[in-house]
Design a protein around this nucleic acid. Structure first.
Lengths: 247, 247
DNA sequence: TAAATAGTGTCTTTCAGACAATATCTC
DNA sequence: GAGATATTGTCTGAAAGACACTATTTA
């Protein structure tokens, strides 16, 4: 049961030459899409873009996740492609970025068989970028009719995010360089949609040993909170258990 | 998820059909690979295939994960493509199959920019299929030099499997239609590489409520064990906690 | 009846949630 | 000092590991 792949068909765009006769078959379209999350106005938000409004574009004028075709000349890898999209839309170079999954079939894009590679990114948004439109509270974004199967992808991204927030340090990537434990707890609560116990929360974060103290800062009313910073921004910390074990 | 299905024309390779001028650019190669796991001879094994030994094939003669190009004419989706590969190699139609991730860059395939979509499958192997060569104990397979970046993919598959075995019912898909709790525990131990406590294990499995009794059967020495069957073969069960919480 | 394997009971430890108490900040 | 917020301490209940015990089968 050896499986020889050779499918005599019209030459693909960009087909190579020489001995590569067996590569002469139709290739799917290849795209990357990114679900970019942040916390703005005390809510979890996602960045959407409008599809170009030209006649020949599919889903013209619809809202969509940022993304587009892989450019084999510019993108060294799928990850690089995702980083490029992210840089284009947000100016952020190195956020938390994780591969979510792939969706590929003959139907999802009217232009032909297309496989998309979805990533999700977490980043803090500050200053003018926060005013940029395109930020949607996630509940609103989910109610919106999105281009392609982006509603499915967004739902999967949210599900993954909410699931991982139960047992990882992911929410820390939604905050800036330093942050307080109460602020972090608030983000956890926003994503999870339920309140957490203060004492248990602190124990969890501190015992995990993934935070470094970064000085005390005042400013608001009440006692000044200790600031912390991530010991390692390159990866999330996995806690030994999730919140509220059973239930 | 309203989804406009209109596929006006097959991907025009090189052609400029109507307004589709923007599709006229080089496309990556698109493949699917599957890490197929089973338990044979009291060990976790993975199925490898030999790359064709012809001169013009990359990695000729090397061992590799089963896989190959997506065939846009035959495969309705990436998942269908994975199922086809699986059917070809094992004859099994509906095993546990999960998407693992994508690896795509300009370097991994000498034939050009290539994105692969990796899946992993769990299935029981019985009768003659067990004699088929290509089954490798996972430790041996990992030591083998594999084609492409399949060593990376196999390592990721193993990591995912081992990680999920800590808190899901995945190992049950490595066994046949019915099985005993001692047999199931043995599979957990094989995958995890450490012994588990009998009492705690049974409590866990039974409390999760994902098993149905399937009659008692004797045969071997000692007391006859109760057989069980999965209540729902379409999805794995997630336990509220993992084994040995901290540590 | 002995050996082998399946299945149960119960004690202990661990740890997360609840919640009360204390500390420190601004005004 | 009052109000607001941060931080700590202690109790309690649930659940997993440890391990000894009981049950049922074959030889």
């Amino acid at each position: 049961m050896q499986h020889i792949v050779s499918n005599p068909a019209p030459p693909p765009p960009g087909a190579t030459v020489g001995a590569a006769a067996s590569l002469d078959f139709p290739r799917p379209l290849v795209t990357v899409d990114v679900a970019i999350f942040s916390v703005l106005q005390d809510a979890l938000q996602v960045l959407l873009v409008r599809r170009p409004d030209t006649r020949e574009e599919p889903f013209a004028g619809r809202w969509a996740l940022p993304g587009g075709f892989v450019d084999v000349a510019r993108d060294a890898s799928l990850l690089d492609c995702a980083l490029r999209k992210l840089q284009d839309k947000t100016g952020v170079a190195a956020p938390y970025l994780e591969q979510l999954g792939s969706w590929g079939d003959a139907q999802r894009d009217p232009r032909g068989w297309c496989a998309t590679h979805a990533y999700f990114a977490l980043l803090p948004v500050t200053g003018p970028a926060a005013a940029q439109d395109g930020w949607w509270a996630v509940e609103d974004a989910c109610r919106q009719p999105l281009a392609f199967d982006h509603a499915t992808i967004l739902a999967a991204a949210l599900e993954r995010l909410r699931s991982k927030v139960e047992y990882t340090s992911l929410p820390a990537f939604l905050l800036g360089e330093t942050f307080t434990l109460p602020a972090l707890q608030r983000v956890y609560e926003l994503v999870l949609g339920r309140p957490l116990d203060k004492s248990a929360f602190r124990r969890r974060m501190l015992d995990a040993g993934y935070l470094d103290e970064a000085g005390r800062a005042g400013g608001t009313a009440g006692r000044a909170a200790m600031h912390y910073r991530l010991r390692d921004r390159s990866r999330a910390t996995v806690f030994p258990r999730g919140f509220r074990s059973g239930e």
